[in-house]
Nucleic acid binder design. Structure first.
Lengths: 111, 111
DNA sequence: GCTTTTTATTCTATTTTAATTATATTTGCA
DNA sequence: TGCAAATATAATTAAAATAGAATAAAAAGC
């Protein structure tokens, strides 16, 4: 996948199962081995592993090996990039016309 | 696509071309016919139309027919759902996490 | 009416994604 | 040593997404 960071992150969280896995890791008290993660889901352990790799590739999950186990923990920080992307469009929520004027004012391209 | 609202929205904005199309419509002064939208992109008009349908299905674009033309305009409001989804995780990239990082950093310095 | 413009529709090919099964590897432990 | 646990890897299947070509249809303008 040769896509940029924000695209990786958005694709990672666009899948409901991956959002569930991510959420389970965020609220977990500690890092969880893959078996323990996959035990919480209907799909196979291999399926969960692939989702974890996608999340890891987006920076949303960290996986560290300890003995024969691989411990997974969530890292929500990359979601800041999504929040930043949203910020631009936030000014257009609400009344369309006045917000467009705000945007044009900010850009100094209006009169 | 038989998925819930937030999944539709995230999938819609997970594609870079669709983000570009959406952005072009947001900053457009008025609604644009499909031909005018597709003129701004390398891909075919059919491709742009499909992306517009995906965006429309997510509620991010409104398309109204007027004569033989179909005018497209952006509606950023559904992005609120994404912001709301992010809000829960915001607390995990705040103080608690950086405190943990500080602790680990200090530990490394002492060793 | 005829032509051009705008768009939809149908069809096809390619790629990506999601998930499973089967097999192999590594590690911990009796 | 030998077995069970945890995981990886490979092969495969099925479905969905992406994109474009060809064709059809509707509306605008002459």
């Amino acid at each position: 996948m040769q896509s940029n960071k924000i695209t990786k992150i958005l694709k990672a969280i666009a899948d409901p199962t991956r959002r569930d896995i991510f959420h389970a890791l965020v609220i977990a008290a500690s890092a969880l081995p893959i078996t323990e993660v996959s035990a919480q889901f209907e799909i196979s352990r291999q399926g969960v592993t692939k989702h974890l790799k996608t999340l890891e590739n987006a920076g949303l999950v960290e996986i560290t090996t300890q003995g024969r186990e691989r411990f997974c923990s969530a890292d929500p920080k990359p979601l800041k990039a999504v929040q930043k992307w949203l910020q631009f469009y936030e000014q257009f929520w609400g009344d369309a016309l006045s917000n467009l004027e705000n945007f044009l004012d900010n850009k100094n391209i209006k009169e």
